[in-house]
Design a protein around this nucleic acid. Structure first.
Ligand SMILES: [Mn+2]
Ligand SMILES: [Mn+2]
Ligand SMILES: [Zn+2]
Ligand SMILES: [Zn+2]
Lengths: 141, 141
DNA sequence: TTTCATAAATGTAATGATTACAAAATTAAA
DNA sequence: TTTAATTTTGTAATCATTACATTTATGAAA
């Protein structure tokens, strides 16, 4: 749980003016590693900030992304999710419960064929399957 | 370039009745490894099949996917692309020209941490960057 | 403090891809 | 041929995202 001073400072470091809405949105992402959609962020924060507009959430998340403060996670068609974690990691989506899990992988060992003389800027590893919890639920039926 | 007899047979093998539209759509995917969107498939085939409906393209591609005949490639938000290649490979999207390239990688060497007791059904590796051709174009400016 | 300019947030309308659905056309069986 | 089932088609509905004009907040100058 980061305090607001720190959040403000991190926004400034990314060249983003720390408005109240921006602070609360970034704080939400940092404290809830659930890779939320715009709608999820909006619904949660609208309780705290009744005047919040969904457009602000769209604009803010896009702004964060452009300033490389967060990344979008594109594991499922028809929904963009956001992630404030900045270490290298992959994403697993459980096709049963819909949850998204982080995982680590040995990215340094990855070798590519067919990309000679290409510039690689961003690598994403996505896996779909059934999470442990859903797997065990299924067993007990 | 596969002949229609073969395409028909492959559809049947996947438990899909080979209608004329389905044959032409699958043929298009096999002959054009460009990871097209629904709209691209539609526009190309509409010239040959003037009565073709975009809904048919949507339905057919979804049907193919459900029968594991093709995969969707989800490298860019706001557009679903399709791929009839069934060997394991990753996708590179050039953020300059928009083209999508296949590449091979050493998937057998990949190790994961955090997915113990998870069931892994499908792994996708996506990379964004600048392709060789665009890189060279940029140099000459 | 007031004035003014700039930036940010808001609300509504427009867009665009996808899906739902009912009607028409095709195919296969009887 | 008649009938039923499947497929295709066209249009309308949906839903996430974006565009845009208006309002609000912020901050510096006077
Ligand atoms: Mn993550
Ligand atoms: Mn491919
Ligand atoms: Zn699950
Ligand atoms: Zn390129």
């Amino acid at each position: 749980m980061k305090i607001i001073q720190n959040i403000s400072a991190e926004l400034l470091k990314a060249d983003i003016k720390p408005s109240w809405q921006r602070i609360k949105i970034y704080e939400f992402l940092l404290n809830n590693n659930i890779h939320p959609t715009v709608d999820t962020v909006y619904k949660k924060l609208a309780k705290e900030i009744p005047t919040l507009s969904k457009t602000t959430v769209y604009n803010t998340l896009k702004l964060f992304e452009e300033h490389h403060l967060i990344k979008n996670v594109n594991i499922e068609e028809n929904e963009i999710r956001y992630d404030a974690q900045n270490h290298i990691h992959g994403h697993f989506k459980c096709t049963q419960c819909g949850k998204i899990f982080d995982f680590k992988y040995n990215y340094k060992d990855l070798k590519y064929k067919g990309l000679d003389d290409f510039i690689l800027n961003q690598t994403d590893v996505m896996i779909k399957g059934i999470c442990k919890s859903c797997k065990e639920k299924n067993k007990s039926n």
